[in-house]
């Protein structure tokens, strides 16, 4: 599969103070490869460098050091050509205040070189797709946060980008609107087959949208993989609790696929697995075949939030792993 993003050894620091005497290193040698058609998430606590990384990849910011290649084009030498093929949408969207939804879309459509009828049709289609119909003549500063966010997404699709950058796309939105926005992102990606790189604080968003996720902490990627793989990496996962009668051997259970840990206390067997729902049937079969009688089964699901907390704690043994 061809790469949409190839970033190698990205360093970025910012200077502040009167003579720039204070220097803060935000990215410390980030390497990243994202395949075309992938939805890739960057998670991390505040100040981890997520937005800085996204800004560099979208050509809004130059790194101090390192190589950036977007869709096979050198990001440092040929940013203009990249900008024709990418777009960006940010949480807390800001556009020209006194321009209406429609006018803003026409303005940015023109910036992407859309002319006449093609632009008119594109704007109309995006207004419909992002449920902005009925609000197309409302000035930007009178839109609700959700509407602004949808306008931002609509604007980001004007040039049918091959690569879309989403910076906290649902920040500040209520859960219902967030779900709708995620659906729009997912269906737009399905329609266009574009690559999406998104930063988020929202674990559920990352888990539901992203094929792979990178955890960024203090300017470094400390883990990278699918949601399931990351759970396995930090050895936390869904907990299957089985009350039983008869013989059970943890040695046998732990060899089963997806099992992270197994412990027995009295008549309660606690098994930690990467994906509880999909592993449940095989675990029950193993236990039944061993001769034990199952009295009760319960499943406690963990989510990416727990993984995030583990990585944010930063235990050295779990750092620097990639799957």
């Amino acid at each position: 599969m061809a790469l949409a993003i190839r970033a190698e050894g990205i360093y970025k620091s910012f200077r502040s103070g009167w003579w720039g005497q204070r220097r803060k290193e935000v990215l410390k040698g980030v390497d990243l490869q994202v395949e075309q058609g992938e939805i890739f998430g960057i998670l991390g606590p505040n100040g981890a460098g997520k937005t800085t990384l996204l800004s560099i990849l979208s050509t809004l910011l130059f790194p101090d050091r390192g190589k950036v290649e977007i869709l096979g084009i050198d990001g440092l030498r040929d940013g203009h050509r990249i900008r024709e093929k990418v777009n960006i949408s940010s949480g807390n969207a800001n556009f020209l205040w006194s321009l209406s939804v429609r006018e803003n879309l026409h303005f940015y459509g023109m910036l992407y070189g859309l002319t006449g009828k093609a632009r008119e049709e594109k704007v109309k289609a995006l207004i419909e797709f992002f449920d902005l119909k009925g609000h197309e003549h409302v000035p930007f500063d009178r839109l609700s946060t959700g509407m602004k966010q949808r306008l931002s997404l609509a604007k980001s699709m004007l040039n049918d980008p091959q690569m879309l950058f989403l910076d906290e796309p649902t920040v500040g939105l209520d859960p219902e609107v967030s779900v709708r926005i995620r659906e729009k992102i997912r269906s737009a990606q399905r329609e266009n087959g574009m690559t999406i790189l998104l930063t988020t604080h929202n674990m559920r968003e990352a888990e539901s949208l992203c094929d792979r996720i990178a955890f960024l902490k203090e300017g470094e990627i400390v883990a990278l993989g699918s949601a399931g793989a990351l759970k396995r990496m930090v050895r936390i996962g869904d907990v299957v609790r089985i009350e039983f009668n008869g013989p059970i051997s943890c040695d046998q259970i732990i060899r089963a696929e997806g099992v992270i840990n197994c412990s027995i206390s009295g008549d309660l067997c606690e098994i930690i697995v990467d994906e509880g729902e999909s592993r449940l049937a095989s675990l029950i079969a193993i236990i039944s075949q061993g001769g034990a009688q199952i009295k009760r089964v319960s499943l406690g699901q963990t989510d990416l939030e727990d993984v995030f907390i583990e990585f944010a704690k930063g235990t050295d043994s779990d750092m620097g792993l990639r799957i």
Partner: peptide
Amino acid sequence: WSKSIKHTFIAPV
């Protein structure tokens, strides 16, 4: 004033 400057400069103009 609209804090929208990055959208202008991410466009290929």
